[in-house]
């Protein structure tokens, strides 16, 4: 079967498998804590249960929170349209779509902040303010990583996510993989930030004064909450997929099916790493968070400089 003829697979695979990543992370954490842990498919059960729940809205809220979850979900899926998977090309690909990719993520964040602010609670507002602040600090790091990818001495056809993620081949593995390795570390930290994992945010706490994502969605319920949870798991998939493409050469095996399986395994491995980080690290103090984000900028900057040597 020639998978390259079916770009829509690069959309379907994440849509099916993304919630599994949460299961893997939770299993890893359970193993570290010596527990058995929840089933691997727990997130699917949760989503199923949430979809069948009733709608509850705050009396203070407006159409923003009602439309917010829908926009967050659809934009996340649209972002997936631009993302290739292993040998499968992305559904839509054009020169310059990296910028659309980055700014789609910004749209998600904007709606997230507004949905949080809509209910008029200080808790949600606190989360929203932090979300905007940390994301703003991460923005230059993301863009600088993109600049580094663009200036890497590899022939590229255009500025699309599709070509940029597929530039690592066995031929140039030894010349560019050190740079890509540093970049993937910086992307990993951004992953932890964007999907609100430890050390930025603790997904298990709802009422600590330090959390970000979990507090924004306090007043979401039912289908809306399901959509946001699903969208966040897709976001986790998107960033894991970027890292996996930066680390594994695109032509590592000729067999297309095997290629896809290798990428799947590496994405699951990244989830395990996230789980390990969550089990072994403590959440950072809020004042320290900005230092870590600036650290990613420094990492991207180092890789940018290495490009010119």
């Amino acid at each position: 079967m020639n998978f390259q003829l079916y770009p829509v697979l690069s959309l379907i695979i994440p849509l099916l498998l993304a919630p599994l990543l949460y299961g893997i992370i939770n299993r890893t954490k359970a193993k570290f804590a010596g527990r058995i842990g929840s089933p691997l498919l727990q997130t699917y059960y949760d989503l199923y249960k949430l979809i069948h729940k009733n709608f509850i809205y705050s009396t203070s809220s407006s159409w923003i929170i009602r439309i917010g979850s829908l926009i967050i979900f659809t934009v996340t899926v649209t972002t997936l349209l631009l993302l290739p998977f292993a040998c499968i090309p992305s559904v839509i690909s054009f020169s310059g779509d990296i910028l659309l990719f980055v700014y789609m993520l910004a749209l998600i964040r904007f709606m997230m902040i507004l949905s949080g602010m809509d209910v008029g609670s200080s808790f949600e507002a606190m989360g929203s303010a932090r979300e905007g602040y940390f994301a703003m600090l991460a923005e230059p790091a993301v863009l600088l990583s993109l600049v580094t990818l663009v200036v890497l001495p590899v022939s590229k056809i255009d500025l699309s996510v599709n070509t940029l993620l597929k530039m690592l081949t066995l031929n140039n593995f030894f010349t560019i993989s050190p740079i890509l390795f540093i970049l993937s570390i910086s992307f990993f930290i951004i992953l932890l930030l964007e999907t609100s994992r430890i050390p930025f945010d603790d997904p298990n706490t709802h009422l600590e004064l330090t959390m970000i994502h979990e507090v924004i969605i306090l007043d979401h319920a039912g289908l809306d909450f399901a959509l946001i949870t699903y969208a966040t798991s897709l976001k986790l998939w998107i960033f894991s997929s970027i890292i996996s493409h930066l680390l594994i050469p695109i032509d590592i095996v000729d067999n297309q099916l095997l290629n896809i399986i290798i990428h799947l395994i590496s994405i699951f491995a990244i989830s395990i790493v996230v789980g390990i980080v969550e089990s072994t690290f403590a959440r950072l103090r809020l004042i320290r968070v900005q230092n870590l984000i600036l650290g990613t900028f420094v990492l991207s900057f180092i890789s940018f400089i290495i490009c010119w040597i």
Binding site: M117, G120, S128, L137
Partner: peptide
């Protein structure tokens, strides 16, 4: 871009959202 997003989410949510 990041700061403008932050700034305008602030304006909109403080003026129009909540109570």
């Amino acid at each position: 871009g990041g700061l403008a997003l932050f700034c305008f989410s602030k304006v909109f949510s403080i003026v129009f959202l909540g109570e």
